[in-house]
């Protein structure tokens, strides 16, 4: 186990730049949050509005998918290129998603009553 902890003081301008950058990032997160709330609202609204189920089902699944991608890439920082081994991590996450999808597919098609 390595124990080296690099502590480098940042220059004043670098520090201010970083501060600004994370403030901008935070603002983006709030916008993402607003989008998520909106998507949730739309999902509930389509169901309440009583459209045809064949239309609603794909739509709300799509909305859920968009929300999840937003959560993963913005809130959970999968878009952070500097995070350690983020490439390996996203490979694992997406492989997990593919396997999860296989389960859905199988249980929907080859389990019968």
């Amino acid at each position: 186990m390595s124990h080296d902890t690099e502590i480098q003081g940042r220059s004043q301008s670098q520090y201010e730049f970083d501060r600004r950058k994370s403030a901008v990032q935070m603002r983006k997160q709030v916008i993402n949050f607003a989008i998520m709330i909106f998507l949730t609202f739309v999902a509930f609204a389509t169901v309440v509005a009583d459209f045809a189920p064949t239309f609603i089902k794909p739509v709300i699944l799509l909305l859920a998918g968009i929300q999840v991608v937003l959560q993963l890439y913005s809130f959970m920082h999968m878009d952070d290129k500097h995070a350690p081994f983020i490439g390996v991590i996203s490979t694992f996450v997406w492989v997990g998603a593919v396997i999860a999808f296989t389960f859905f597919l199988a249980f929907n098609t080859i389990i019968w009553w």
């Binding site: 389960f103 199988a106 249980f107 080859i110 389990i111 019968w112 009553w113």
Partner: peptide, 12 residues
Amino acid sequence: GNTIIWEHLFWI
């Protein structure tokens, strides 16, 4: 219930 679920989960 459905016992096939066990078979799927087990073999997955």
